[in-house]
Nucleic acid binder design. Sequence first.
DNA 1: GTTGTAATCAACACGTTTGTTGATTAACGC
DNA 2: GCGTTAATCAACAAACGTGTTGATTACAAC
Lengths: 123, 123
Amino acid sequence: MVKDPDAEERLDRAFMALGDPVRRGIIARLSRGPATVNELAEPFNITKQAVSRHIQVLEHAELVTRTRDAQRRPVHLNAARLEALTAWIDSYRLTHEQQFRNLDSVLAEMTGDDAGANEREKK
Amino acid sequence: MVKDPDAEERLDRAFMALGDPVRRGIIARLSRGPATVNELAEPFNITKQAVSRHIQVLEHAELVTRTRDAQRRPVHLNAARLEALTAWIDSYRLTHEQQFRNLDSVLAEMTGDDAGANEREKK
DNA sequence: GTTGTAATCAACACGTTTGTTGATTAACGC
DNA sequence: GCGTTAATCAACAAACGTGTTGATTACAAC
């Protein structure tokens, strides 16, 4: 159980894990509550073993955790980790939007002091 | 140029694309403005060809677009696609939180009408 | 104990990804 | 035209991911 194997690697694993329709389906199901491997495997026509490995991938990505209940091992969603992903995306999404605002103000300055009004007036 | 190759596949490609540190680095750089392949390749010690292919992956995932400027092909971030990813994540994140609220109200009902007050009072 | 159920482990096949090097296309500057 | 720069294409090797089947572990119920 490694503690912080570099934040980059954690993002690698989490984003990669979501890049598969079966695993996203599992996440979607778990958002409505915990489930066992058999329950999670039911909607897919692949073997239970394959689903079991998908769950291991999600677990390694820290997107889900597992508890124990007799011979069952219910899987739970780890919403905190999902939040980390939106945080990453939004960080750059907002930087990008800020970039546009800066460009706009530069152009506004040009048109105010100078000549201009020649670029970027669509919409 | 396929139009809508199923929304699931688009998510596959986009999440998968972000599951690589080089490609996330490219996205991070592009959030500050467009850049050429050479500029994007500079921080990484892999060949320019390898970076070129990473960009193709991002392009296929619709996370970036390309324009043309003489022999240069500047890469631009497609923030709208990033937004679609946070929308997907948040949808299930919120479902999950709602699930907890429902559980709370069920428990509150039990403690009100009945006996109870035995579970979930931390915080 | 035996039987049944839940889940994982092990070995293997197949396809995809990611990197390399070397050749090629495309546009510019002189 | 010629050389330079930007970028991609092509072929290949190594590594990885995802699915299969068959054996195995762990627990519960009788």
